[in-house]
Design a protein around this nucleic acid. Structure first.
Lengths: 201, 201
DNA sequence: GTCTATATACTGATAGAC
DNA sequence: GTCTATCAGTATATAGAC
């Protein structure tokens, strides 16, 4: 069997470089959005030429998609132990909001890109359509589980509760991005969730 | 007294042209944002050259600021009879949400621009900081009035209720922009407000 | 008031040397 | 894997004719 022509260390170096680029790109796209951010900005931060960046990611669109894929993977690792369901899932969500308060950069990334992507021609439009569908379904299932075991206050409709909770989270993020001392996102979300439940959170 | 060198009709024509440009600019900035939208796009829609547009508005920043000033003026005319206070103010807000459902373009304009403007270097950053401060105070006052007359459910904190209501509205708009059949913004807002009140809305 | 022409700068992407 | 050089496209803004 022919061994690969490069030693293992070379691959690791490439992977590390890709990671550096993804980090820099997160910075750039979160502050300037997709349209406003440039490959040259990204390249400069990582000490590479613009063409150097395009060696690792063949286009700007590929790059921004890779950023989101990587960040989603990370979020899933945080939340995503598969046992979580029902109220546990809601608890994990509240914890995620609390955690987000320590990563304004990521919050800004999703807020900025998703707003840009409401336009159907935006390269990330389909990504965010799918993302919203997935998140809504995820939370809806959790509330439906809770309802089935009598943990939901009377009159609370799971699908509506899901839409509302996600909307609240997104909207609080906007206020928080403009003034981080103005809002305690986790506290507001926790208090809202409590108002939906018939049991302790 | 020397009369102006132009007849009244000339001024009216200029004002009409400015208005055409503002309409076109609303279109462009709402779909592409500030960074993504270009003066040439605006000019093309209104049948003018790019330099022609810059005759009426000296820069892109002036133009987008004029768009927002004009739209704010319109919104204030809708909501803004000065007698509205307390619960009436909240009712007017819910009505505004219902009305917004017939103007997706405007909803998109504010959603897109405000997300872009979270970055402090964005030309609209200060505008949106002020806007959020004003809106939050406006709603906070309404809830405080309601609390003082016993119209608020026990345990509801006016500042928190204000932040939460605004967040809910902003967040619902995002979901609605991605899929207008997925959310009934007015219904969700109305139902949320009811859960805060000790009286009928 | 509107145009054409232009200055200046920056964009994403490609070609090819090393 | 990274570079320089470059292309073609677009941007905002200005100068000056009409």
């Amino acid at each position: 069997m022919a061994a690969p022509s490069r030693a293992r260390g070379e691959y690791a170096k490439t992977a590390a470089r890709r990671q550096e680029i993804l980090n820099a790109a997160t910075d750039v796209f979160s502050t300037s959005g997709y349209h406003g951010g440039s490959l040259r900005d990204v390249a400069e931060r990582v000490g590479l030429s613009q063409a150097g960046v395009l060696h690792h990611f063949p286009s700007k669109t590929h790059l921004v998609e890779a950023v989101l894929a990587w960040r989603d993977e990370q979020s899933l690792e945080r939340i995503g132990d598969r046992l979580s369901a029902g109220l546990d899932r809601i608890r994990a969500l509240v914890d995620l909001v609390a955690h987000n308060q320590s990563t304004p950069e990521l919050v800004e990334l999703y807020a900025t890109l998703s707003a840009e992507a409401t336009s159907p021609e935006h390269p990330l439009h389909d990504y965010f359509v799918q993302r919203y569908a997935w998140v809504t379904g995820y939370v809806d299932n959790a509330f439906a589980d809770a309802a089935a075991t009598g943990q939901l206050r009377a009159g609370v409709d799971p699908p509506s509760a899901a839409r509302t909770l996600i909307a609240l989270m997104d909207g609080l993020q906007m206020q928080w991005l403009f003034d981080r001392s103005a809002v305690d996102m986790a506290a507001e979300v926790r208090s809202h969730v409590r108002s939906l439940l018939a049991v302790e959170l």
